[in-house]
Design a protein around this nucleic acid. Structure first.
Lengths: 253, 253
DNA sequence: ACTTGGTAGACTGTCTACCAAGTGCCATTA
DNA sequence: TAATGGCACTTGGTAGACAGTCTACCAAGT
């Protein structure tokens, strides 16, 4: 996922054209691999990343690693210290909060625009996602609920039709997941009730209401985070856990 | 300006420490040089950028150029086609509109947070900027007015205290300037009256009002753009003009 | 006239090797 | 103990090489 570019798919291809699979540039694969490793904790926060080391680890030369690291630096996953190397970014105290605040703004606006551009089919899909998610929630399938939650949110931002909002929200979202995941507060059923109200507002093309609900919805996540912060112990990185045996739990928001 | 990183200055240095000037990495300079050339039209839209050519042009090797190009790609200034090279991005029809919409959301939220965190000194500075800008406007010094306008807006986003909003808004702003500059509609005096109202709302810590005014303010810019679009001829790139003799006119919004 | 096949040149993607300069660490020294 | 000097390591940047691929063009065949 690039940052702002229109992307190669955005060119108005006549329907039916399918570009054959083009082998991804190595730097891209390296970038993906590294974010993956950062998110799942293989590369712990603050860890010193050495180019040749990573290169060896991934079986490529320095070049693609360098390029991937630069991008990771630009997007805030690592901090590049000239002459020393890259360190996996260690989030500051207020960073999660700022991230959540930014997300609230972005997703709220997305919801507004989604309500404006909603089509019948899209709304139907949203409702379906809502139903599925609620079912997951009630059956206790947290992973499923989390996944569906992500799909719902990302579908709404896509519906905004604004690629910049989509892109920014995407970036913020990945970061939020990374910081936030260890805490893993599942807001649960309440979250899905809010989703339902949100979808209803969108289906009624009520822009203000949709924006309002989305804002409250994401703000709830923020306050939930703060409660956890002040209440529970280890705020940022609770378990160093080298190799998470089970897939890590994600957040529902 | 990086994308999201916390930045080296964000580490809580004790006041007074000043890191000695570190020679900027070449890739940074190259990045700056290229954006500059893209904005001022030296590198026309759609132009094929060849690495060795740029390298020769700037007196560096391929590597820094590559790194700069990839960043430019991530931020949407150029489109990278694998195996072929980089082309200066050609904005799509709706792109300016989406950009302005995104900016409206970002700056509106920034204004809200600015109102929340406003200090006496900051408000004083805002008022000063407002006064200066209005003076420029009345005296017909467009360049001055435009510059002050930029300073005012960027100061407000900074006041939000949210580095992500600052960063996103910064990116969007540069892109808007690039697309929008050729059109050069100066909304003029009305814009500065709105600024005054905005600053007043911020000084009164009236978050909703500040957000509201900022949103209307930026939306006015958008409608102004659309009027120009439908009214005037050449919508996007009116004059190829190789070497603009005079400094190009900027927009006031 | 249109398609097919082939050829040539250009450029990127990646690798390797190399050097200079900066950084952090550690042992030695005052 | 605290400053100093030196050493190993790492990045930043350069140069050159090579394969794969993209574009354009031309020629032959249908």
């Amino acid at each position: 996922m690039t940052t702002i570019s229109a992307g190669p798919d955005s060119s108005a291809d006549s329907p039916g054209v399918r570009h054959v699979k083009r082998p991804t540039p190595l730097r891209e694969s390296v970038y993906e691999a590294l974010t993956e490793m950062i998110i799942d904790g293989t590369l712990e926060r603050g860890r010193h990343l050495v180019e040749v080391e990573l290169a060896g680890m991934l079986g490529v030369s320095r070049q693609p690693v360098r390029e991937a690291l630069q991008r990771l630096n630009n997007e805030g996953w690592v901090d590049l210290r000239p002459g020393f190397g890259a360190m996996v970014h260690v989030p500051a105290e207020d960073e999660v909060d700022q991230l959540l605040a930014a997300r609230a703004a972005l997703e709220s606006e997305s919801a507004r625009l989604a309500a404006r551009h909603a089509t019948k089919e899209a709304v139907a899909q949203l409702k379906e996602l809502c139903k599925v998610g609620t079912a997951f929630q009630e059956s206790g399938d947290i992973d499923g609920a989390v996944r569906t939650n992500g799909e719902l949110h990302s579908m709404i931002t896509e519906m905004s039709g604004n690629r910049f909002l989509v892109d920014f929200a995407g970036q913020v979202d990945r970061r939020v997941r990374w910081y936030y995941t260890p805490v893993a507060p599942v807001r649960g059923a309440a979250s899905w009730r809010e989703h339902a109200r949100l979808v209803k507002a969108i289906s009624e093309a009520d822009e203000d209401k949709a924006a309002q609900i989305m804002r409250e919805h994401t703000e709830h996540t923020r306050t939930a985070y703060h409660e956890l912060q002040s209440g529970g112990g280890a705020p940022i990185q609770p378990a160093p856990e080298k190799k998470p045996a089970t897939r890590r739990r994600r957040t529902t928001d």
